[in-house]
């Protein structure tokens, strides 16, 4: 099921309602124009979802070949790429990957009191190109490429439902365990680069993006219809902008929430136990209270 989070129709109704009741300034200035974020069917979505290992592997490939130009994953160790519940690459391949990583780790001080630069190992984080935020900003013309470890959890898709349907969407989201707003947003961002509408005046070095709040984004389009990553023939998918965006989003969903598979599996066991126990306790309670009218 796909549903527009922006819910254009409702937004129009809301704007009208607000304008009707407004005593102060009306909303919907240009920078408040609704973001265009669509809900996708993620393999890891909902109550039963689990990561698709092949997708995480493809996603890592995209991350490695595109995102690492500017971003790192400081909370993710190389070794975890080989662990179950993730891309689960062969351990040897991950060792080789770490040993050939383009960016070095600053370590030390060594016995002579000097800091050293060395290649990462399995226990080291997947470092990006910059040693610190200041270096990043100076190279990127003032913009800071954020660390991507938690980016999927740190973003969300805004709901623009009006007050009278807000509650129903909320309950529906709770009942279906919708928690993929960050992934939906990231996919929408990666595929959301467009020509700026004539009415919008773009700032220097900014790119128009339909999903980004305010629509002016400093990140140049990392992927496009003409520039995307080709996959190996046995990877389970063919490369395209759309497929790349989905796969790298899934990979970053994993880096943000590496315990998702275990969590959801254990969740079902716990809930089943609770459900049965609650029913048994209810039967006991009925039996006990059968002695008195109440």
């Amino acid at each position: 099921m796909k549903r527009l989070v922006s819910r254009g129709g409702f937004a129009a109704v809301m704007t009208a309602a607000v304008a009707f009741a407004a005593t102060g300034p009306v909303l919907a200035a240009d920078e408040h124009a609704p973001q265009h974020v669509e809900r996708l069917d993620w393999a890891f979505a909902g109550v039963g979802g689990q990561y698709d290992r092949a997708q995480l592997q493809r996603g890592f490939q995209v991350f490695q070949q595109v995102c690492t130009a500017c971003h790192g994953l400081k909370y993710v160790r190389f070794g975890s790429l080989a662990e179950p519940g993730g891309p689960q690459f062969p351990l040897e391949a991950v060792k080789a990957l770490a040993a050939s990583w383009p960016y070095e780790i600053t370590d030390g001080p060594n016995d002579e009191g000097k800091m050293i630069e060395r290649l990462p190992g399995l226990a080291d984080p997947i470092v990006g190109p910059y040693k610190n935020d200041k270096e990043a900003r100076s190279v990127q013309g003032g913009a800071l490429p954020p660390d991507l470890s938690l980016i999927v959890k740190a973003r969300k898709a805004e709901s623009h439902a009006p007050w009278y349907t807000h509650w129903f969407w909320m309950l529906a989201d709770i009942a279906t365990a919708y928690q993929e707003g960050g992934a939906d947003y990231l996919y929408a961002l990666l595929t959301g680069y467009e020509e700026a509408p004539a009415s919008v005046e773009m700032a220097e070095g900014m790119y128009y993006n339909a999903a980004f709040p305010g629509h002016q984004l400093a990140m140049s389009p990392p992927l496009s219809k003409d520039f995307f990553i080709e996959y190996q023939p046995d990877s389970g998918a063919t490369g395209s902008l759309d497929q790349n965006a989905k796969d790298v989003t899934a990979f970053l969903a994993w880096t943000a929430d590496p315990r998702l598979d275990t969590r959801k599996r254990l969740g079902w066991q716990v809930l089943l136990y609770l459900l049965i126990t609650t029913l048994l306790l209810y039967a006991v309670k009925k039996r006990i209270w059968a002695r008195v009218k109440h």
Binding site: A177, L271, L275, I288
Partner: peptide, 30 residues
């Protein structure tokens, strides 16, 4: 006590639904 037990376990179903399936829903992405 028998009724409280039903109440506590029933409420725990709701609670653990969030813990296992929506751990970040009630928080804020920022």
């Amino acid at each position: 006590t028998s009724k409280d037990a039903v109440g506590i376990f029933g409420f725990m179903i709701l609670f653990l639904w969030f813990v296992f399936f929506l751990p970040d829903y009630l928080g804020h992405a920022d």
